[in-house]
Simulated scan of single mutants.
Amino acid sequence: MAVTYTKGTDVALLDPAELAERLAAVLRGAMPWLVTLSEDEATAQAEAGKWSAKQVIGHLTDSAVNNLGRIVRMQLAPGESLPGYAQDGWVRVQHYAERGWPEVLALWFALNEHVEWTIAHVERKSLANGGTVAGQGLTLGFLIEDYVAHMEHHLRALRADLARAGCRFDATGV
């Protein structure tokens, strides 16, 4: 968790409902163009050594799994030390590249709808709960904000990579 995607807002200014809505907006913005990808487009790597769309969305699925656990644990046991995860290994051993695009996309969307639901039900005071993730001290509020920013980062990069590869999108969004 050494890379962060947001500077973070003062937790006193954060609201779980707004954080959940931010995530919902990212999902609503991305799905219309993600569903237009063909199996071939989702499987192709933009360049050697880069993840395909399936692998990027698989990585974001793994992020959902890991961060959902962190969001729950930081509410139940503030101050706990939580592990990071080996993102390349997770993507590799789950074989997202070989799975059908509709299944990869559906899993990512369903998990993130649940993450959104869970965030919406976080008690506001819990956003100040601290913990350690992969050795980095942070608050639950920061974790959630950074989760959404991380997703936005990857979706913007994926869309740009796909556009450079010649994909045409009929829909707008992240």
Rank of each mutant, 00 (worst) to 15 (best):
E116K: 05
L13G: 14
D10M: 11
L127E: 04
I57A: 00
W101L: 05
A53Q: 05
A2C: 09
G135K: 02
A134N: 14
G141T: 01
K50V: 14
A128Q: 05
E103L: 10
L127A: 05
L155S: 02
R99C: 02
G79M: 11
Y96D: 00
A48K: 07
H95G: 14
L107K: 01
F169P: 05
E98Y: 09
Q75V: 06
V56L: 02
N67Y: 06
Q94N: 11
L107P: 00
P16R: 02
A53Y: 04
I57L: 05
H153N: 11
D10A: 13
G84R: 13
H153W: 11
E18R: 14
L14R: 01
A30Q: 02
L34W: 01
R92D: 10
H154T: 09
V104F: 03
K50H: 14
H114C: 03
A86T: 15
M151L: 14
K7R: 10
H95V: 10
T9H: 05
G131Y: 05
G100K: 09
G79W: 08
T132G: 04
G137R: 14
A25D: 11
N66A: 08
S126C: 11
L60D: 01
A120T: 07
H114K: 07
L68E: 12
V91I: 13
A46W: 05
E21C: 04
H59W: 06
M151P: 00
R28Y: 13
T4E: 08
A24F: 04
L82G: 00
G49K: 11
A163S: 15
Q45C: 12
L27N: 01
A25V: 09
S81E: 15
T139I: 12
K125Q: 15
A42C: 07
G141Y: 00
Q55E: 12
A134T: 13
P32T: 10
G69F: 13
A48M: 08
T132N: 03
E123A: 15
S38P: 03
A77H: 11
